[in-house]
Design a protein around this nucleic acid. Sequence first.
DNA 1: AATTGTGAACCTCTTCACAGCT
DNA 2: AGCTGTGAAGAGGTTCACAATT
Lengths: 209, 209
Amino acid sequence: MERISTATISRLSQYYRTLERLIERKIQTVSSDEIAEIDSVTSAQVRKDLSFFGSFGRRGLGYDTTDLKNNIGTILGLDKIWNVALIGVGNIGRALVDYGEFKKQGFIIKLLFDSDPEKIGKKINELLILPFSDIQTYLKAENIQIAIVAVPARVAQNVVNTLVESDIRAILNFAPISLKVPSGIMIKNENMAIELEALSFYLKNKLKK
Amino acid sequence: MERISTATISRLSQYYRTLERLIERKIQTVSSDEIAEIDSVTSAQVRKDLSFFGSFGRRGLGYDTTDLKNNIGTILGLDKIWNVALIGVGNIGRALVDYGEFKKQGFIIKLLFDSDPEKIGKKINELLILPFSDIQTYLKAENIQIAIVAVPARVAQNVVNTLVESDIRAILNFAPISLKVPSGIMIKNENMAIELEALSFYLKNKLKK
DNA sequence: AATTGTGAACCTCTTCACAGCT
DNA sequence: AGCTGTGAAGAGGTTCACAATT
């Protein structure tokens, strides 16, 4: 397949949500113009993003909302269940266990890990918190494909190294630090402070309105 | 000022964290090559990013870590305190109240709002949960510059509209929906599921390794 | 000798504009 | 007539490569 930019992928996720909402509202057909308007992009962008994967519309008519949603779902891999392990059940970790948007899209948090003896053995929503020291055994037994890392920055690289040794190939990292992974392993960083800092920059420099 | 890309700004945030860590380790000088290596970018990228704002290094020698950290801090607006209001104290909202990375960078959550009568009047970390219906009065009294929205998708646009009417100019949105704001208002979206979906896409399509 | 700062070259992503289909 | 799908043009972002400086 041709190389697809991450920008395209994250816009597809947006369109997917927009389509979910249109379907809820019983809207059956939508044009690239309408999607573009809702998601604040251009209609050419919507069509180009889709064109990397096929032709999903009908000229003159637009797209069938359910069809297009299903097609994008398949592209993104949302047509299957992904088993997820969550490492670190502090503030952020606990919030993620309950985050409905994950479950809805087929990402099931199946295992929780922590290193704190105070937490190990306790439960969050029926899920037992397991000792991080035994993670390799558990990961293999449960067929986990994705790991979410929500541990403090100073231990994040070690945690990631252990995950890589356990054959995890995709990691979502919430620790505010750049992590190194071997090529072939996907890592995405979610740093809430970085977004706030972008706002702070624009407030300070741009908006002399 | 020349238009600066958001990519540059978020890399500056990364460099800033890298410098914090170098300073902790008592390292006084760093080259663009070393920063680049840590943050997985090219050294030309580091130098170019900085060059939009000035010359902070010394040829042949590199950058003074403390100097550069302070300079980037000033660029990003981290040299001042930002007062933040948080709307929605569900799972995500509660986690954010305790998120150390915000406080450390000068973002102080001063007001909490919710619409749930069960929550209003309760406290999280000494902070009283206030009724969202009265938000306009509170925002004006407390000089709030930034709002974090952590409410369900279906009410997010209404919340944002109210914020805009209350003269909030910067919003960090955690609701998984595209929101409309008038031009001049900054909005940044933080959608954790979108990052997971990118991982899912790459697992499914790319990594036939 | 080492490393910055930067114009120019390069590459990637976005938008244009229109042929082609319904 | 209306809207998609897409090659070509344009805009924007990244990397190269080297003169300038310590």
